[in-house]
Amino acid sequence: MKISRLHQIEEYVYQHETVSLDELCEKFNVSKNTIRRDINFLAEKGVLEKVYGGVVAKSSTLKTFETRTVDNQDIKLHIAKFAGQFVEANDIIYIDSGTTTNNLLLDVDREMPFTLLTNNLDAINLATEFSNVQIILIGNTYKRATRSFINMAEDSTISKFNINKAFMAATGFSIRDGLSNSDPLEWEIKKQIVKRAQSIYLLADNSKFDKSALYSYASLNQLKGIVTNKPISEEYQQYFMDHSVITYLV
């Protein structure tokens, strides 16, 4: 119940940009103390900012999918194309939703046989140009804001698949919170995918370094590799060395 309310608060603030504590109390039918605790939690996660008597949405959360696609566009394209080389014949891969992962198949051999699981609409559109790919859609409800599919049936099919490689996106990543995301419905899919994947690759530009969102879906030590564009701090370098996580700089 609390997780659902936190997500609803996040969405409500996102839609209204500036909201008072009294308005949130009335909207969600909870006490001011409860709202303060929820707001403190969301503020610590970087989802929103506290102001006198209320909260405001952080500017980064107000960006549309199209705006986020343009942000660091060349960098994201390089990261995606580099990660595409990890796709091999007869692989069973998962491509996550996101503005970096959506271009992963651009330079992959169009004749290569492989199986693609994804909830990423752009990845699906690209994959239809391939001659020998089997496409399996994950999710049953289209989310326009992220051009992805969310929601899983109770008898989720993810647990039935053996995934060789999962190419994941994240709102942020940190040693403390691992890979995190702000949407509970996307989080549920991500969490199930990483349980089934033999090798997990994170595709993330430097704007995601040492950031945390509302829901963590994997720890950093579960990664096989991270593809990014700038050197990471010594603390992260040591952590990745200790846990055999390979860093690819592009």
Rank of each mutant, 00 (worst) to 15 (best):
T146Y: 15
W187S: 06
N40I: 06
I92P: 06
M152D: 14
P184A: 04
K224H: 13
L6C: 08
E26W: 14
I232V: 15
N33Y: 01
N151D: 14
A170N: 00
Q134P: 09
S207N: 15
N181K: 15
L6A: 06
I193E: 11
R176P: 01
A127S: 04
L48Q: 06
N40K: 02
F149N: 03
N90T: 04
N151S: 09
N132L: 10
D96V: 10
I79R: 02
I92F: 13
I3E: 05
Q238K: 13
F41Y: 08
L48H: 00
K165N: 09
V87H: 03
E11Q: 03
K58C: 12
S180D: 14
V55K: 11
I3T: 08
F82S: 12
A204L: 12
V70I: 05
N120H: 06
Q222E: 13
L42P: 01
D177P: 11
K76F: 09
N162R: 11
E10K: 07
V87R: 00
R37T: 02
N120F: 05
L220E: 11
K2S: 06
L6N: 08
S182G: 05
K195T: 10
S131G: 00
I158S: 09
S156D: 06
I246P: 08
Y142E: 02
A170E: 13
Y94A: 00
V13R: 07
C25T: 08
K230R: 10
G172H: 02
T99Q: 06
L42W: 10
I193S: 04
D210P: 04
I163K: 01
S59T: 08
A43M: 09
R36A: 05
A83I: 05
F173G: 13
S31K: 02
N33K: 03
A204S: 12
L116Y: 02
N206C: 14
D91E: 01
D122H: 02
